[in-house]
């Protein structure tokens, strides 16, 4: 039991201590603890910087879009799969829709780039075949969010649907019997038996999703980013990376990161207490 505890102390809790860097002016020679305190200077610097608002806007718009579009899809998928009784068709759909989950972020972005390439990409070949002009999808900032969100749905909907399918399988069969006796149509059955049955699961997944609003996946955004679409694709996480690791501005980047973690924590607590009030399910 000791090695794992050491792991958590060293790689999870020690960094939290190190985060005091945000309140200091980091000096390589003096080290983290020897560097002078500067109070909230780094935070002030960040909030006064015009980029703060654009980062916040980009982060929230992207994750808001992802939440709105991405949240219902797996639920619908699971409800539909649940209507299909057994059989090979159901198994195949499940198997195939789950598969993209195993594709790595790098490969996912590679596929996106090959499909949307300005000259030879599949999307533009198709547009040309229909007699339309080519579009430089990844160079247009306006397309960035849609590309991110819909590729994400393509990749994860089948995986998330499995969670809902499990919840659907746990619904008391006598409820279906009762619905049948009452002459409910398939649609009514979904509305009055399925949906209420998986509501606790929906709420929990929602909480987890909202809790991740600020912790948007750095990896994919960073890989999809290019100088042309950066006005919409620079989010807090990618900014921390470029300021901190590429420009070695440690203190400032730590402050930005810390701000992000805090907003995230507050959001999570907020959503959880809301869920507790309006339904019986919460994550703690």
């Amino acid at each position: 039991m000791l090695p794992p505890l050491l792991f958590f102390l060293l790689f999870k809790y020690y960094p939290m201590l190190n985060a005091v860097l945000a309140f200091k002016d980091y000096n390589v020679i003096k080290g983290i603890w020897g560097s002078p305190w500067v109070g909230l200077k780094n935070f002030k610097l960040f909030f006064d910087n015009p980029i703060f608002w654009s980062l916040l806007k980009n982060t929230l718009l992207l994750s808001g879009y992802l939440l709105l579009a991405g949240f219902p899809v797996p639920i619908l998928l699971a409800l539909m799969l649940n209507e299909v009784r057994g059989g090979r068709f159901k198994r195949i759909v499940q198997l195939v829709s789950f598969a993209p989950y195993f594709i790595s972020t790098v490969v996912m972005v590679s596929i996106i780039m090959l499909f949307l390439a300005p000259r030879l990409g599949f999307a533009n070949l198709a547009l040309n075949a229909l007699g339309m002009e080519s579009v430089n999808f990844l160079g247009e900032p306006g397309y960035f969010r849609s590309i991110y969100v819909w590729s994400d749905i393509w990749q994860t909907a089948g995986y998330t649907a499995v969670i809902y399918l499990a919840a659907l399988a746990g619904i008391d069969p006598t409820l279906y019997e009762a619905a049948k006796v009452d002459g409910a149509s398939r649609f009514q059955k979904i509305r009055h038996v399925d949906l209420p049955g998986i509501m606790p699961t929906i709420v929990i997944v929602l909480i987890l999703n909202v809790g991740n609003v600020m912790a948007l996946g750095f990896e994919k955004v960073y890989l999809l980013q290019n100088p042309l679409n950066i006005v919409n694709s620079e989010i807090i996480a990618t900014y921390v990376y470029s300021i901190g690791l590429l420009n070695a501005n440690y203190s400032f980047a730590t402050a930005v990161g810390l701000f992000n973690s805090f907003v995230n924590l507050i959001l999570l607590v907020l959503v959880n207490s809301l869920a507790k009030r309006f339904s019986s399910s919460s994550i703690w």
Binding site: F11, K12, Y14, P15, M16, L17, N18, A19, L21, G211, A237, V240, Y241, G244, L245, Y250, A253, T254, G257, L258, N260, S261, N264, L265, L268
Partner: peptide
């Protein structure tokens, strides 16, 4: 639910 962040790690 909470981490020190990229740079401290």
């Amino acid at each position: 639910i909470f981490s020190g962040g990229l740079i401290p790690t």
